[in-house]
Simulated scan of single mutants.
Amino acid sequence: MNQVPFIAVEGPIGVGKTSLSQKIATYFSFYILKEIVEENPFLGKFYDDIEAWSFQTEMFFLCNRFKQLDDIKKDFLSQSKPVVADYHIMKNMIFAKRTLPADKFDKYEQIYHILTNDMARPNVLIYLDASLETLLARIDQRGRSVEEKIQPAYLAQLRQDYQQFMSEFEQKHSDIPVIRINGDELDFIKHQADLDCIFAKIKPYLSKGVQTQ
Rank of each mutant, 00 (worst) to 15 (best):
M59P: 00
R98N: 09
Q211V: 14
R138L: 08
M90D: 10
I114T: 06
E109Y: 07
K104W: 12
I126V: 04
Q192M: 10
Y162G: 00
K23G: 03
E148G: 13
D70M: 01
K91R: 14
K73L: 06
K201E: 07
F6R: 00
P152D: 10
Q164K: 12
Q164Y: 13
H88Q: 00
F199Q: 03
H88F: 13
P5A: 09
V4K: 07
A193L: 15
L77S: 04
P152E: 12
D70E: 12
D187E: 09
V178C: 04
Y27L: 07
F28N: 01
P82T: 02
D70I: 08
D49G: 06
Q211C: 02
N182L: 08
Y112T: 12
I72L: 14
M1N: 03
F169T: 01
D49I: 05
F66I: 12
K91A: 07
Q68D: 14
I36R: 10
L136V: 09
V84T: 02
K149I: 14
V83F: 07
A52C: 07
F61R: 02
A200C: 12
S29D: 12
K67H: 11
D86C: 09
R142V: 13
P152V: 11
F165Q: 12
K201Q: 14
G44R: 03
M1F: 11
K190S: 14
F46P: 01
D70Y: 15
L158I: 02
K17L: 00
E147F: 11
V210S: 03
E170R: 11
Q3A: 12
Y162K: 03
A200S: 08
L132G: 06
R159L: 10
Q56T: 00
Y205I: 01
T57W: 02
S167A: 13
S78I: 13
G44E: 11
R121M: 15
L135F: 07
S54D: 05
R144E: 06
I181A: 03
D103Q: 06
Y108S: 05
E133Q: 09
Y27F: 13
R180T: 03
H173S: 12
F66E: 14
Y127V: 00
P122V: 04
S174A: 09
Y162D: 00
D194Y: 05
K73I: 10
Q213I: 15
D71L: 15
E170H: 08
K203F: 03
N64T: 00
M119A: 11
I114W: 11
